[in-house]
Nucleic acid binder design. Sequence first.
DNA 1: TAGGCCATCTGGTCCT
DNA 2: AGGACCAGATGGCCTA
Length: 150
Amino acid sequence: MKPCKLNNNNNMEPGLEAGSQCRSGTTCTAKCGSERLENTAKRRLAANARERRRMQGLNTAFDRLRKVVPQWGQDKKLSKYETLQMALSYIMALTRILAEAERYNAEKDWINFHCEHFHQENCHPYTGQKMTAEVDPYAQRLFSFQPDSY
DNA sequence: TAGGCCATCTGGTCCT
DNA sequence: AGGACCAGATGGCCTA
């Protein structure tokens, strides 16, 4: 039999081992030991259940992440590792898009301002029209996102 | 059948 | 003290 390693039983003094004296005065015999084992087993089962719930929560979070991350081919669901890698790549791509868009807007404003004041005859001021990917080099460059290979 | 992925159990550690 | 978190072990399922 294993020694009384655990000190969580109220009847046991810390550090006592099987066969030594309990607080109640009884010896730590089969009954005491079996109660302790029972408590240990109960706590283990409770811990297992908590761990299961925790992992289920984690998996739910992974499923939610899979839904918002690009999936290359719908046939096979991304593994957890792939999901994290894809999320990382996706966030970086979106960050790049934002940065480029801001820079693009700044350039556009500056050009419009420059035209209004200095070169009106040669300018084609920005009208807010959408540009297609075929004619807009920025759009082509920004949406060429590919997942990292690993 | 080997390898990848996953769920679960378990013991240890940290935190409240 | 008890719960959360973590990492290692193990076994099942699936696919190439």
